[in-house]
Computed example of a mutant assay.
Amino acid sequence: MTKLEKIEREIEALGPEELSHFRAWFAAFDAANWDARIDSDAASGKLDALAERALTAHRDGRTRPL
């Protein structure tokens, strides 16, 4: 059995309250990892080309207000 399969079985065995707590924890955990990845990509310049394309589109009038 893989590590992931073990985790899946443990999650399946959780009661409703524990599952609710797990969901909240995992959502926060996942969001923090996502934020860290975005911060890392931004700091390394990986997002510079995308930002420039967006700014160019805006300057060229190819955007609309939200």
Rank of each mutant, 00 (worst) to 15 (best):
M1H: 14
K3Q: 14
K3S: 13
K3L: 15
K3E: 15
L4Q: 13
E5I: 12
E5V: 14
E5R: 15
K6S: 10
K6V: 13
I7C: 04
E8W: 12
R9P: 02
R9C: 03
R9D: 10
R9S: 13
R9I: 06
E10F: 09
E10I: 07
E10G: 09
I11T: 03
I11Y: 02
E12D: 14
A13P: 03
L14R: 04
E17S: 07
E18R: 04
E18C: 00
L19K: 11
S20V: 01
H21K: 11
F22W: 02
R23Q: 05
A24V: 06
A24S: 07
A24L: 06
W25K: 06
W25A: 04
W25D: 03
A27Y: 09
A28Y: 05
A28C: 00
F29Q: 06
D30L: 10
D30G: 04
A31Y: 08
A31P: 00
A31K: 14
N33C: 05
W34H: 12
W34P: 00
W34D: 11
W34S: 07
R37P: 00
I38S: 00
S40L: 05
A42M: 05
A42H: 02
A42D: 04
A43T: 01
A43N: 03
S44H: 04
S44G: 02
S44R: 10
S44A: 13
G45E: 01
K46A: 14
L47M: 11
L47F: 01
D48W: 02
A49T: 11
A49I: 08
A49R: 13
L50F: 13
A51L: 15
E52L: 13
E52Q: 14
E52S: 11
E52W: 05
A54Q: 08
A54C: 04
A54V: 10
A54P: 00
A54F: 09
T56K: 15
T56F: 06
A57G: 09
R59M: 07
R59S: 08
D60Q: 14
D60K: 13
G61S: 03
G61Q: 03
R62P: 01
R62W: 01
T63G: 02
T63W: 03
T63Q: 04
R64M: 07
P65D: 11
L66H: 06
